[in-house]
């Protein structure tokens, strides 16, 4: 499985660390809504098909990527840097 890092190009999956469901929304830091916090920490989308995920290129440039990957075929259809000011590109 290869993931194309916007900085480093196509790299083997072994260089990346999976950071899970990218759909989760962290509540505001001072939020007292415990349900929202619990959902954020524990409850995950787990679709059979395309999944929005966060990966870190931990064995490379260490940036975090927003990846769309199919959980049935492992095909990666998009990988962009998470940090907004990169606009998805380095």
């Amino acid at each position: 499985m290869l993931i194309t890092c916007p900085y480093c190009g196509p790299r083997d999956v072994s260089e990346f660390t999976y950071q899970g469901d990218g759909n989760r929304q962290r509540p505001a830091p001072n939020s007292q809504n415990l349900d929202a916090w619990n959902e954020y920490v524990y409850d995950r989308l787990n679709p059979a098909g395309d999944h929005n995920e966060i990966w870190q290129h931990s064995g490379g440039c260490r940036i975090h990527l927003r990846v769309v990957r199919n959980t049935l075929t492992h095909a990666v259809s998009s990988a962009v840097a998470v940090r907004g000011h990169h606009g998805g590109k380095p």
Binding site: G20, D21, E39, Y42, D43, R44, L45, N46, P47, A48, T71
Partner: peptide, 18 residues
């Protein structure tokens, strides 16, 4: 397949990753 089957029941978020 828990995620897939529970989604049929309208539950798409669980404390589980496959």
């Amino acid at each position: 397949s828990t995620g897939r089957v529970m989604q049929l029941a309208g539950i798409d978020r669980l404390p589980i990753e496959s």
